[in-house]
Design a protein around this nucleic acid. Structure first.
Lengths: 236, 236
DNA sequence: CAAGAGTTCTTTGTAGACAATGATAATTAT
DNA sequence: ATAATTATCATTGTCTACAAAGAACTCTTG
């Protein structure tokens, strides 16, 4: 078994992806033996992987009762809204101050993929590309004290966006174009080293995302009276 | 082996303590077999423990090259100064908003231990009690997105304070009393639910700590001319 | 004498088997 | 019939032994 090491990192990345795209639903319990089989490894190293992912916030360990995909409740959503703008703004500011040219290249590459995913209406790819874009900004910030919080926020931001993202909705099409434009803005501001600008844009970008989420969480009520056909509205 | 579970959690707490008090020096490499022996467990569960602690920021894993106590460089110190006030203020604010009475009791208990450690000039106990005090405030905030950053900050804050803390210095005695008073202030403000007050006090508390650290990192230069006795100044 | 390659040895990583705990279902007693 | 208790089962947690990768040392060669 020469490539077990590769398998281990692969399993970590795959599990991250599955959690982010909700292929593994929040709150779902995982089976160690099943996962170990799936990734063609034995349980001890898999357990290490699970611990690590728990540390990163993807999973939750319950002593003697198994591993759970990090659940999302109304409380987590509230906390998310409270913390996100502050962290995003701080990270963006630091990124503009510290970004290397190599990292800016990475960011541009990520933006290409983001654009592509939106054009092709690939929900999961879009969510992952967006996560990657912001994760790179996090790397640029290069601050070991703030990145843990950013990581944690991105996990749930990505998962939340997966729950309600509807590539067919024309209302959201405009917002998607705005998001793409804002990403371009990030690249320009970071390249220019404009810390204040990047921080301000982070707040705008967050506001855009927040409206999207709010529109889904608290949608406008149905207008029909009892007895009418409700099918065509699709409020779910 | 009925109590292996207890041993596992005990090993986690002990390792945390040893890192925080610098009984394990920053950057030091650990030996798995030695640690496993020390905690009377086999290597696989110990490796899980190490992964978890790495996730929490106490350790760093190096693929195939062993485990290292999280190092502290000039860069980490700079990042620390950048991030700490924001996170501390935010956490304190949320703590004042959400603290339960049970948690306030815990905080008061922690403060008793903090006072005691300072009175008895026990450096490690003081550092750990201070860490615990602020960790409880973190629990009060009850925000899974911000606590990871707070945790990370407290690790290095505790370690930094251990490096230069000198219970004999009379200059620092006054600062210690101020710190105790500020902790009392936290308790009062949190109990009163004064979020703005708690956030403001967090900034003050941070400033106090920062001056202490700065005085150590950039001390005033020695005044003696060459050839004079330098022993009595203790500039290390 | 210095530099590089080969070999040995220490240390990390993994596998498979075993033990123990928590969950589930069945049986018994009220 | 329902509730409690016990027994069985599935699943988590751990241990010992083995394999492989990295580090250090030695031996050889320029």
């Amino acid at each position: 078994m020469a490539e077990t090491r590769a398998r281990k990192t692969a399993s970590i990345e795959d599990l991250r992806r599955r959690v982010l795209t909700q292929a593994l639903a929040p709150g779902a319990y995982l089976d160690e033996v099943q996962l170990a089989e799936h990734y063609a490894m034995s349980r001890p190293p898999l357990r290490e992987v699970l611990r690590q992912l728990a540390g990163e916030g993807y999973l939750e360990l319950h002593e003697g009762r198994g591993v759970q995909v990090a659940p999302m409740t109304h409380k987590t959503l509230r906390n998310f809204f409270t913390s996100a703008p502050m962290i995003y703004a701080a990270i963006s500011r630091l990124a503009a101050e510290h970004a290397s040219t190599a990292q800016i290249m990475q960011l541009k590459d990520a933006q290409v993929l983001f654009r592509k995913a939106i054009r092709d209406c690939e929900t999961a790819a879009r969510a992952l590309a967006n996560e990657r874009f912001h994760a790179i900004i996090g790397e640029m910030a290069d601050n070991e004290y703030l990145t843990p919080s950013l990581r944690r926020l991105l996990i749930d931001h990505t998962r939340i966006s997966m729950t309600f993202y509807n590539p067919r909705s024309t209302v959201l099409a405009d917002q998607r174009m705005q998001a793409v434009a804002q990403h371009d803005g990030f690249i320009a501001l970071i390249e220019a080293g404009d810390a204040d600008g990047a921080a301000a844009l982070a707040v705008d970008h967050w506001e855009l995302s927040r409206t999207e989420i709010e529109r889904f969480v608290a949608p406008v009520g149905l207008q029909e009276t009892l007895g009418q056909d409700l099918k065509s509205r699709g409020a779910s």
